[in-house]
């Protein structure tokens, strides 16, 4: 491994790698936020919905969790454009990851909510809280503690899955790295570097998750 050559090429490629990293972060943040919001509704529908709604949402979750993310990305990019909805590669990729994230978050939320004893909801009702108030003031704070560790796990999965967007031509960190490799032939060095950056990203996410966990834990 020629270290000084690698550093020179890394410096030359810094702008394209940084813009790739920016895209990776943007894709991940957008998908996790949108997917989590959608996922909370999915979880709520699974827990409190009418029977027909639960059935539909169950199909949605099982279908999305049972499909490889890769297939989901291709479907969002190609099938939607046949139907007439023409998304850019970036939009299609974020949509696919959002759907994938929502199915996971939905299942996490459902699990957390059903772990809270029924008595809590009944008590909230008896003091006159509406369903919305019950959810926000009684159930959600308790459920959050359950949700957080697995949610952080899902977020790191999304960061890793964002590499698959390179297939439909989104120049995120992996494709930006491959572009540098094709020019410099330093495959080992640059793949190691990309791996290290992905590790750093996920390490930061995990540490942030731990910090929040410590703050909200019941002493």
């Amino acid at each position: 491994m020629n270290f000084s050559l690698f550093l020179t090429e890394l410096w030359n490629a810094r702008l394209s790698l940084l813009s790739g990293l920016g895209d990776t972060i943007l894709i991940s943040v957008a998908s996790v936020i949108l997917g989590s919001v959608l996922g909370v509704f999915v979880g709520l529908a699974m827990t409190y919905g009418a029977k027909w709604l639960r059935f539909i949402v169950r199909l949605y979750i099982d279908f999305l969790r049972g499909t490889p993310v890769f297939v989901l990305i291709l479907a969002c990019f190609y099938i939607l454009s046949v139907v007439g909805l023409d998304l850019t590669a970036f939009q299609a990729g974020v949509l696919a990851l959002t759907l994938f994230c929502s199915s996971h978050v939905g299942e996490i939320v459902r699990g957390a909510l059903s772990a809270i004893p029924q008595g809590q909801t009944e008590a909230a009702k008896s003091v006159g809280l509406t369903f919305g108030q019950t959810f926000v003031y009684v159930l959600l704070p308790q459920a959050l503690r359950q949700i957080l560790p697995t949610w952080v796990n899902t977020a790191t999965e999304i960061v890793k899955a964002s590499t698959l967007l390179s297939i439909i031509g989104v120049v995120e960190l992996l494709l930006a790295t491959q572009q540098v490799i094709s020019r410099t032939y330093l495959s080992l060095e640059f793949y190691l570097f990309a791996g290290f950056v992905y590790f750093l990203l996920n390490f930061v996410i995990e540490q942030a998750g731990r910090a929040v966990e410590r703050r909200i834990s019941i002493p």
Binding site: N12, V180, S182, R183
Partner: peptide
């Protein structure tokens, strides 16, 4: 494409 010189690749000026 963007990863196969000399056909299509991203040069050092991005």
């Amino acid at each position: 494409g963007s990863t196969n010189p000399p056909w299509h690749f991203v040069d050092s000026d991005n």
